[in-house]
Write a protein that binds this DNA or RNA. Structure first.
Lengths: 356, 356
DNA sequence: GTGAAAGCGCTAACAC
DNA sequence: GTGTTAGCGCTTTCAC
């Protein structure tokens, strides 16, 4: 019973083990398993029996090297824990799976270095595409580095996809699936202004984060198009977490900042801000109006239900995958821009002075 | 200039292309890239120049076949969109990355067939471990199938990990990292009972879902240990979404079910239930008390802030990875059980009649 | 139909 | 130090 190769149950067996046990050659095993070549019923039966007895399954990595691997797709995000990231990730994963691709993930916690390393690893794995999910830093150096990464990926037959992030320099080999970040913020802010508010606090994210910037631009533009110039003291920055919203709102309140409405950069931020307002004894929207951004499922359950802007996050993820996988190598660079819309609920009212 | 192999920028280049360009053999390239063997400065320089010019990076799949690949870890979950799933996923991903492993994901949307297929694919990829994240079906057939999968994985040198899911049959080769699901529900229900409530509505999940079952068992046990037998009409089942909570609560209210408190199987369910209660003009906790389960970040921002049970989800994910990767092949089967605790906030008060 | 042999891209043991 | 050769596990010509 002393054999070189493994018996059932003892370690991974190879195609040669199966061949030996079935009394055929490795090529024959490959053929019956592949199912693309004709094989006699008798051998097929014997081979399959050996396969089952050994619980054999072909090594996917070896198949990949031989040129018949399962295609793989990678996606990178800041932190899967954020509801909007999770929605996009879900869209990506579902669509990739539907199209027969495996999904590799990496969360970076905002560390650009880590992000770059991962992309390089994905290039080594010959991933069909690398999808950057959600906004990111938007400094010139960052864009430039990403441009190089995109080239590098492209020349290896892969492709960089920006999902929910603005394009790089024109001509860079990237596929971008964005939503109208600024437009949504513009409409949202316009809605608040229309109610009569004039001093609107903006609870933003990190100053060099593309999403934060886009939303702030919308806030600014909505004011300027109405001939207003919002007080810079009214723009606070933090990050996109619930805790940031809570902290910023408390700070604004304790500093005695004057405002009648607040625009939070995300629904999570709005949630924290709302709690801070409640704790300060403020009624929303009676004493202060509040809006968010993202329309996460929870937004309806805040009290008052949050007015916010809806972003088709899951669709964004799906589209990113579908677009890049449908791409014909030499094709034009894709750039899709999905629309957003504000969903009005109960967290905005005219300012108190206007009601008196 | 007509050469068989690719020049810079044209498709993926191999180690042989680099070797040719540097005027050395492939092994030498391998050696300077590996950095484990001594090489002369001159050749190293030339090789590295060729590597950069070609933007070469070694094929990770080929390395894997040759036995020096990056280890990979797979995780499977129902739907990354659920906050508790996302937390566990984050823990898994962070720890895997810290330990130098790549992460493959798959979401199943509760489809057992899809789950099984994916696990098989992971076996083919020689994943170091396959982590099932979050609860799942808990029928005898399912357990049996999973037992077979666990054996199959084990004999291939991989390992099945259950993270936030109860063990299979004793002796099955699985690593399980659970939390005290039932204990948490018991404590939570005890807390509500202690306030004087006697008719407590339970908004559960799918009847054969392990998590739903555990929580319901806790609810039941807390009653029985006090000599009570809760009215079966008070136990509703749905799923773990916000919408389910909303729907179930509306239904309970419109049916005229009598209860003074509600235990929602998850915080998401509680959020939906809370909104339904508000819409029905009920004050929480004045008219009805409400508690959740999971302690997701949002729980604090509901109004009233939600009393719930805290589960160390992220730690659960981290531990699952750490435990399985630290495992010595012949070792005892691990089974960790993490504690939970109820966090009291503002959503529970004594029943109205007790206050009168 | 089936086996032998070559090849995928890489690493490592063995020469010189 | 560096080239040659064999080998990882698989697929796919090319013969017979």
């Amino acid at each position: 019973m002393t054999r070189k190769s493994a018996d059932a149950g003892a370690g991974r067996s190879t195609i040669r083990d199966v061949a030996a046990r079935a009394g055929v050659s490795a090529s024959t095993v490959s053929r019956v398993l592949g199912g693309t070549y004709p094989t006699s019923d008798a051998t097929r039966t014997r081979v399959m029996r050996a396969v089952h007895e050994l619980d054999y399954i072909a090594d996917a990595r070896a198949k990949a090297v031989a040129g018949v691997g399962t295609p793989t797709l990678a996606f990178v995000l800041d932190d899967i824990t954020g509801p909007s990231f999770a929605l996009m990730a879900h869209g990506v994963e579902r669509e990739a799976s539907r199209l027969g691709h495996l999904c590799l993930v990496c969360s970076t916690d905002g560390d650009a270095r880590h992000e770059l390393d991962f992309i390089e690893t994905m290039r080594a794995h010959r991933a069909a595409a690398v999808i950057l999910v959600g906004g990111g830093a938007d400094t010139p150096e960052y864009r430039e580095r990403m441009g190089r990464v995109a080239d590098s990926l492209a020349s290896a037959g892969s492709r960089l996809v920006l999902c929910g992030r603005p394009p790089l320099a024109p001509g860079a080999p990237v596929t971008v699936i964005e939503y109208d970040n600024e437009g949504g913020a513009y409409a949202l802010c316009a809605h608040v202004l229309t109610q009569g508010h004039r001093r609107i606090l903006f609870l933003g994210g990190s100053p060099d984060h593309s999403t934060a910037q886009g939303r702030e631009r919308g806030y600014l533009a909505a004011h300027r198009d109405r001939g207003m110039d919002p007080d810079p003291a009214l723009r606070l920055s933090g990050d996109f977490t619930r805790d940031s919203g809570y902290r910023l709102m408390r700070q604004a309140l304790s500093q005695g900042l004057e405002f009648t409405a607040v625009i939070a950069a995300t629904d999570m931020v709005a949630a924290g801000a709302l709690t801070a307002a409640h704790e300060a004894g403020l009624d929303v929207p009676g004493d202060v109006s509040l809006v968010g951004y993202d329309d996460i499922p929870f937004a309806r359950d805040l009290h008052p239900a949050l007015t916010t802007v809806h972003v088709p996050y899951e669709e964004l993820g799906r589209l990113a995958v579908r677009t890049v996988l449908a791409r014909t190598p030499g094709a034009q660079d894709e750039h899709l821009l999905l629309g957003t819309h504000v969903v009005v609920r109960d967290s905005v009212a005219p300012p108190a002075n206007a009601r008196r």
